[in-house]
């Protein structure tokens, strides 16, 4: 489904992209992503397709705002039955709750449900309307971090099962990681489109890399002509060899994967290695990182298992592992 909307107030915004499967519009806070969803739902004056000119009650959208917005005066099943008519609305609501695994809690009031449970009830309520398009506003924002990935997986599985085009807006890379398609927004413009694999393989800019949650996205400047270039990393007051075809003096965003950073003992460090000091260790379910201070900047390193950090580490950045994007 093609989404093409133009908003004038409270911010000027134009977005045009295809929604297929679960499409995640990724952008920083304040980009107007939520406004776009509200515009599509008809809750904000705007022009565009689909549903142009229709009042909100005649737009077949399932809109899940942040915080889920369940009706606090209605039980879980009554929330789902809200959009249903007829004598069998309770049975229909129960069937929807069954589908999202919430039938056992049908009699509960929203306030007694967890964030994830509320989200599933809100999804059942939205699906019961039989929408042509699902709109999810920051669906991971109200979830408990400990269970977020599981709840998110459930949500995506249910949305896939419903087979309704879904547009989720978020600034959360974890949501982007489970999308079928990604739309990246920077400074109120669409800057890249594609599958998560395509976008991760070739982020269009440093801003996109930051949105994707990549570590080690830094600022720098190209010094020298192609073939004999160095990357001036001003925050670390150093320069490292780099291979690009950018002209001398180009300001860039650059990135190196934490696993590509080499750590050396001072005695065996290659010439030009960067002096660093240990700042913090971050160990989580998805791996372990070391935060090393280089001048005013922090560089993340993903050490191999069993790695012992030297007392005065030196870092080298393989030129081929550095990716540079000119700053517009």
């Amino acid at each position: 489904m093609l989404v093409d909307y133009r908003i004038e107030h409270p911010v000027a915004l134009h977005a045009r992209f295809e929604v297929a499967g679960v499409t995640v519009l990724l952008g920083a806070s304040g980009e107007g992503k939520s406004l776009l969803l509200r515009a599509i739902a008809g809750l904000l004056p705007a022009r565009g397709e689909p549903f142009d000119g229709l009042p909100p009650q005649r737009r077949a959208v399932g809109y899940l705002p942040q915080g889920h917005a369940l009706f606090p005066h209605l039980r879980a099943w009554e929330n789902v039955a809200f959009a249903l008519r007829g004598p069998r609305r309770r049975e229909a609501a129960m069937a929807w709750l069954e589908r999202v695994g919430m039938a056992a809690l049908a009699e509960r009031w929203p306030a007694s449900l967890s964030g994830g449970q509320q989200q599933r009830v809100a999804l059942a309520r939205a699906l019961a309307r039989r929408p042509r398009l699902l709109l999810l506003d920051e669906p991971t924002s109200a979830l408990d971090p400990a269970t977020r990935d599981e709840v998110l997986a459930e949500l995506i599985a249910e949305v896939h099962e419903a087979a309704i085009p879904t547009l989720a807006v978020s600034h959360d890379p974890a949501l982007a990681a489970v999308a079928d398609r990604l739309v990246l927004m920077h400074r109120r413009r669409i800057v890249q489109l594609g599958t998560p694999e395509e976008v991760h393989a070739r982020p269009a800019s440093g801003a996109v890399a930051r949105l994707l949650g990549l570590r080690n996205v830094q600022r720098g400047r190209i010094v020298g002509a192609p073939g004999a270039q160095r990357l001036a990393w001003l925050q670390a007051e150093t320069a490292v060899p780099v291979h690009t075809d950018l002209p001398d003096g180009t300001p860039v965003d650059w990135h190196i994967a934490p696993a590509a950073v080499r750590v050396h003992e001072p005695a065996s460090a290659p010439e030009g290695a960067i002096a660093a000091s240990f700042e913090l260790r971050q160990t989580g379910a998805h791996g372990s990182y070391l935060g090393l201070r280089c001048g005013q900047a922090r560089l993340w390193v993903e050490p191999p298992p069993g790695f012992e950090l030297p007392a005065a580490p030196r870092l080298s950045l393989p030129p081929d592992a550095i990716r540079c994007w000119p700053i517009a």
């Binding site: 739902a41 909100p56 009650q57 705002p65 917005a69 009706f71 606090p72 809200f82 959009a83 309520r125």
Partner: peptide
């Protein structure tokens, strides 16, 4: 009454009047 709840009622297909009766008044 959170305005968002009235708006959600609209997106669920209720007319503004029914949204008023079923959401605004009870809340």
């Amino acid at each position: 009454v959170p305005r968002e709840l009235e708006q959600i009622a609209l997106t669920l297909g209720l007319s503004p009047w029914r949204s008023f009766v079923q959401v605004s008044l009870p809340l």
